[in-house]
Write a protein that binds this DNA or RNA. Structure first.
Lengths: 362, 362
DNA sequence: GCTGTTTATGGTAACGTTGCCAGATTCTTG
DNA sequence: CAAGAATCTGGCAACGTTACCATAAACAGC
């Protein structure tokens, strides 16, 4: 790069720098810094950790040596010596289900990073044997805590082997509430979605709620029951009577979502607004309304849930929907973990609001 | 657990076990195992690492001690001693853009895990200062390699400070191709999408390609040019003439996507199939066709790209689309990293096929 | 029965770092 | 100016692990 006196020299200097680089980048230790700067290792350590009692002269020399040799302290040695590992485990059952659930990771990471900690992530793919193996690995690496995240809001069971490891659940919870958790406030979401329709002047508000059965049993999904309660509460607060006919439960296949919309609109007194259990339902709802020649939001307002950007921003008109606090849950989980380091954690059950994202469909 | 001679002893043993557990889970070392089993630390180490020259008797005693004290070797100490860190860095510019890009992480993780390695992930949020800080942290933790992933296929520039660290790019590449990379084969995707329409008997095939400009300049996105080339090639192979009027470029806003569909269908000889640059385009294309009273796939076939499950499976009819090999890219990147440990890596430029996912829209 | 190999075992150093201690120098203060 | 405090400084041990070395016993072959 720099000007060279003559070719041979330039070439030599270049390979030398390269060689040195290769050798050094591998392992520059505090000892070499000490030797290079002509001080003891302790002094170097003191400079690194901003301890007092180092003369300006030596501090300068050490800093220079560090820069010259591209020294980086070994986190491994620090940890072994007695420091913290600075590692947090992020365990998730299945990332793929809800795409924007990645935001949980981002939220967790941002807080961790601010505390000079790093995230070790493992996706178990729903395999509990794998989950236990992951916990084992986390333990071997001395993580200081674990965030267990589910990709949709539901009760979970923790993998074995977590005893004694501070664990916070995000977007899920234990049936017995014995561990701290942070989840979306579904009642709040249902309430404000309905309120948005009411505030826009709508009085008959349909609700295509979610529904799911495994072997005839409906798991206690808060999304289903919470949003319904919020819906009812909002109606009540606005003096509107609750009407069974306006509430439907869809197993979320496109055809079912479509059918429920059609049946809702075939009512003697059809709704002028439809609150959909999620954005996919809203998408199919749009199709059905379009086929009926109805305009959104002119004839019927539609509100979704989840704020899946690809759908909500991609639809025509763009979808007004409820935001799941994924990012915030990730943040909260790690925050709580870090705040309570050392202490035993209270099993706080935190619910974060799902704010309305107003677009064009109301 | 074992039978007790008299109650007092049992009780003592119990609390003792609990107490011991609390204290030990914190840190059981190889030394304590050795003392408990009445052997030397070396012997314990030999058992742990399946080395020969340990009598069955002592091996049994050591294994028992390990189980009794819930011992786990410290990866930190192993690493310091000279072992590998077993850490891989996963650096990404922005996870949020394409939701299913998380599959890159899953793919990377699965391979890493199979090699007893763990993924350290950092999302830079597109901030290059943060990216460099992340590289620094990765270095301090002695990661053995880095996967740099972009969330849509494009040229990138690596953060500073990666010199000497084996790096593989996933879903992105360097302009000068100086580092190995793995990306989707866009030409292949464009070719097979078009071929699917041709094979279904279609002869006039519209193409709503993607387009993007920043300050009047279109970055060299392979998605745009590659798919177009594939489209052209497929037509040629089937003896169909390429027609400029059938190819459009959309900046991907819902309204533009809609407009392009309408204009395509307003042609003197409108297409009987439309290949969309991605699933969002296809979604808007569906709306436009529905409004025209056209049936999919009866009147017009539609093919998407990306296979965003929420859209592709949520539409009516379900969308036939091209799968981006996210999971496979993650796998390939880590595989390549691990295979070439120690060696200097050839800057292989790998392109993985985008297979057709046949659903109902063709 | 003597050499040479195979098997079994534990002690010790080293990995890179920092806390503790001890020694040396300078600065206060009565 | 003597005694104590504050400021510098480096040596050494220890964190938990494994490679290397040394020692010892058992076993083979002639």
């Amino acid at each position: 790069m720099q000007g060279a006196i003559f070719p041979g020299q330039a070439q030599w200097a270049e390979t030398d720098a390269e060689e040195r680089h290769r050798l050094m980048d591998a392992k520059v230790t505090i000892k070499e810094i000490a030797r290079y700067a002509g001080v003891g290792t302790t002094t170097v350590s003191r400079v690194l950790n901003n301890h007092p009692y180092v003369s300006d002269e030596k501090r300068r020399r050490v800093e220079q040596a560090i820069a010259a040799l591209h020294y980086r302290p070994s986190q491994t040695a620090r940890h072994l010596r007695g420091g913290s590992s600075g590692l947090l485990g992020f365990l998730t059952d299945d990332v793929a289900t809800t795409p924007y659930a990645v935001d949980i990771i981002r939220g967790a990471q941002d807080v961790a990073w601010a505390h000079h900690m790093v995230l070790l992530v493992a996706d178990t793919g729903g395999n509990s044997r794998f989950a236990e193996a992951a916990v084992d690995v986390f333990r071997e690496r001395a993580v200081e805590g674990i965030v267990y995240a589910a990709m949709y809001h539901r009760p979970v069971r923790l993998p074995a082997g977590l005893d004694g490891l501070p664990t916070v659940l995000a977007n899920c919870f234990l049936e017995d509430r014995s561990a701290p958790s942070v989840v979306p406030d579904e009642v709040y979401g249902g309430y404000h979605a309905t309120k948005a329709a009411l505030d826009a002047g709508h009085r008959r508000i349909g609700f295509i709620n979610l529904w799911e059965e495994t072997e005839g049993v409906t798991p206690p999904f808060p999304a289903i029951y919470g949003r319904l309660r919020g819906y009812q509460q909002a109606l009540e607060d606005h003096g509107q009577a609750y009407e069974d006919a306006l509430v439907r439960f869809s197993n979320q296949t496109p055809r079912e979502n479509y059918r429920h919309t059609r049946e809702l609109m075939a009512l003697p007194a059809p709704p002028t607004a439809i609150f959909c259990g999620n954005d996919k339902v809203a998408m199919n709802c749009f199709s059905a309304l379009a086929e009926l020649g109805l305009d959104v939001p002119g004839d019927v307002a539609v509100i979704g849930y989840d704020n899946i950007a690809h759908i909500a921003e991609g639809l025509l008109p763009q979808l007004t929907t409820m935001q799941l606090p994924h990012y915030e849950m990730g943040k909260w989980a790690v925050q709580y973990l870090i705040e309570n380091q050392g202490r035993t954690m209270e099993p706080v059950q935190m619910a974060l609001p799902c704010p309305l994202v107003a677009r064009e469909s109301v």
